[in-house]
Amino acid sequence: MTQIGYTMMTEQAGPRALVEHVIEAERAGFDFSVISDHSFPWLDSQGHAPYAWSVLGAAAQATSDIPLMSFVTCPTFRYHPVVTAQKAATVQLLAQGRFRLGLGSGENLNEHVVGEGWPSAHVRLDMLEEAAEIIRALFAGGYVTYHGRHFQVDDARLWDLPDPPPPLGIAVSGPRSCELAGRRADLLIATEPRRELVEAFDRHGGTGKPRVGQLPVCYDTDREAAVARAHEQFRWALGGWRLNAELPLPTGFAQATQHVRPEDVADAVPCGDDVEAVVKAARPYAEAGFTELALVQIGGAHQLPFLRWAESELLPALRAL
């Protein structure tokens, strides 16, 4: 594993805290940072959902070296592709070339708010491909007119265009999204260490491109407290993306996970202060061919102790992978 990143989890902290956390992540020596882009938390207990793009702008000004990335933005419902391209170009300029635009087909939890319905995964991927085409065209400069099945663009242009434009990442979970990412993306994004995702990405043009994964952890010197916090705030993650993409509200995730036990979460998420447990959880990403891994520390109020621990113990161990 060549690079270890830090996740600004918008579902569990407010905007000022998120900026403070990424400043500390840069100081601690993390190689990059990513940010989730949500209009709702997964569970009410997480308690937050600030606008990720305002946080990115503030983070770009508050930090000097750490690369930033959306992880991920859906450019097809809440945001039109033209608006997504403008936001990404602006953040790239503010960050002076440190920004990567991660895209995905979205979750109903975040996109239902605009009242456009929630189509099948196949349709959502078709929409994502059109969006990626539009964004690429705008990044290339000049006026763009586009008439697709899902999106219409009339004489759009980015007047403040960064050079270079942000690299484009696409989140994958199956064969169709891997094929799309291989053709359209500069990097792969995934939340599971599945070798078949990397191999499918490579078959369709992804060979040699970065592959970015994500791993939740729950650091605390009191392991029982860590397990309880992970269960309270992160049990939704055990549902898998087929379920997680479909439910529209945090109450649905609470109901869907009402029988998930703390020990079930502890089996899936490294909890406590055991460095080797995190290394063991990260190793499958390295073995599957991922080149970068973004860590999620569970609990918005528990970031600074985690960052100090990461600086002194965890990052050196992970980089040895």
Rank of each mutant, 00 (worst) to 15 (best):
A171R: 03
S173D: 08
G174R: 11
G174C: 02
P175S: 11
R176G: 00
S177H: 03
C178W: 07
C178I: 11
E179M: 14
G182I: 05
G182A: 09
G182C: 07
R184D: 05
R184F: 14
A185K: 01
A185H: 01
D186R: 02
L187C: 04
L188Q: 03
L188G: 02
A190P: 00
A190C: 03
E192W: 00
P193Y: 01
R194F: 00
E196N: 04
L197P: 00
L197M: 09
V198K: 03
V198I: 15
V198L: 11
E199Y: 05
A200T: 13
A200S: 11
A200G: 03
A200M: 08
A200H: 04
D202G: 05
D202A: 12
H204Q: 11
G205L: 13
G205A: 09
G206N: 09
G206E: 10
T207L: 14
G208C: 11
G208I: 13
G208K: 12
K209S: 03
P210R: 07
P210Y: 08
R211Q: 11
V212R: 08
V212K: 02
V212D: 00
G213L: 04
G213C: 04
Q214G: 07
Q214F: 02
L215G: 07
L215M: 10
L215D: 05
L215T: 06
P216V: 11
P216S: 12
V217A: 12
C218S: 14
C218V: 05
Y219C: 02
Y219E: 02
D220G: 03
D220R: 07
T221P: 13
T221C: 08
D222L: 08
D222K: 06
R223D: 05
R223L: 12
A225V: 06
A225H: 11
A225R: 15
A228E: 15
R229F: 06
A230I: 12
A230P: 09
H231L: 09
E232K: 14
R235F: 09
R235H: 09
A237K: 03
A237H: 13
A237Y: 15
L238Y: 01
G239D: 08
G239N: 09
G240I: 04
W241R: 03
L243S: 13
L243K: 04
N244A: 14
A245R: 15
A245S: 15
E246H: 13
E246A: 15
E246C: 02
E246K: 12
P248V: 10
L249I: 10
L249S: 14
P250M: 14
A254R: 14
A254E: 15
A254H: 12
A254Q: 14
A256F: 06
T257S: 10
T257H: 05
